[in-house]
């Protein structure tokens, strides 16, 4: 039931995502120049084209940072028998997009993420004499277990825990707002229906309402 414009918007967005995956970052502004809005005046940040969204900023993270980030994201949400890993769902590119935005929240997150990625590698070198990306799964987990939960982290790992919590939240956002993540947790909406049936008998039973 989507209009032709909507379908076009989806296709453009898919291309945009494809570009993002290939580049290891997200699409440059060239696509933005191709996508025009018909019938409305000049676009601005407060009046963007909602049907055919474009991104007009570039990723700031260096290749070396993205490698650490990718390893960390996949530790946070690894592949399992139900869904692919965070990086397979494009999460590192999303986090790069996020921390590269000009807004205050994202700028603050940029400091935590960048500083944290460097902190993580330093911690890795200190413990194991290797870069984080070269660690074994067990070695990576050894560090992450120390920073996985702020209330239980030792004082010297306070920043590490704040950083880990930030990346876990961003990884969850990136993963579960992707189609892969939506499928994983069983979001089955966003489809037109002829009628709304409410909860199924199975759901009612699960809730103790049957």
């Amino acid at each position: 039931m989507s209009t032709p414009e909507n379908k076009m918007g989806r296709r453009e967005a898919l291309k945009w995502m494809a570009g993002a995956g290939a580049a290891g970052a997200f699409a440059p502004a060239t696509l933005a120049q191709k996508v025009e809005n018909a019938g409305t005046p000049t676009r601005s940040a407060t009046d963007p084209n909602l049907v055919k969204a474009v991104l007009d900023w570039k990723g700031v993270l260096a290749e070396s940072e993205l490698k650490i980030l990718t390893a960390l994201c996949d530790l946070i949400l690894p592949k399992d028998d139900k869904s692919p890993s965070a990086s397979q769902a494009g999460v590192p590119a999303f986090i790069n997009e996020w921390v590269s935005a000009i807004y205050p929240i994202q700028q603050a997150d940029k400091l935590v993420v960048r500083g944290g990625l460097a902190w993580l590698n330093t911690e890795s070198l200190r413990r194991n004499g290797k870069d984080f990306v070269d660690l074994t799964e067990a070695e990576k987990t050894g560090i992450c277990d120390d920073i996985a939960y702020l209330p239980k982290a030792k004082p010297e790992f306070a920043f590490g825990a704040l950083f880990f919590a930030k990346v876990r939240d961003l990884t969850s956002t990136g993963f579960y707002t992707s189609e892969i993540g939506m499928k994983d947790i069983g979001y089955i909406g966003n489809v037109p229906l002829p009628k709304f049936d409410g909860p199924s008998p199975e759901v009612l039973k699960h809730m103790g309402l049957a």
Binding site: M1, S2, T3, E5, N6, G9, R10, A13, W16, M17, A38, G39, T40, A45, T46, P48, L50, V51, A53, V54, L55, G90, F94, E97, W98, A101, Y103, P104, Q106, T173, G174, T177, S178, E179, N190
Partner: peptide, 26 residues
Amino acid sequence: YDPVTETPMFQLPKDAPLRGAPTPDK
């Protein structure tokens, strides 16, 4: 403003900058 042509009816978070997160602009 024309809601018929300008409304993002089925667009997903992944189709939007920052997955559609609130910003000072939006």
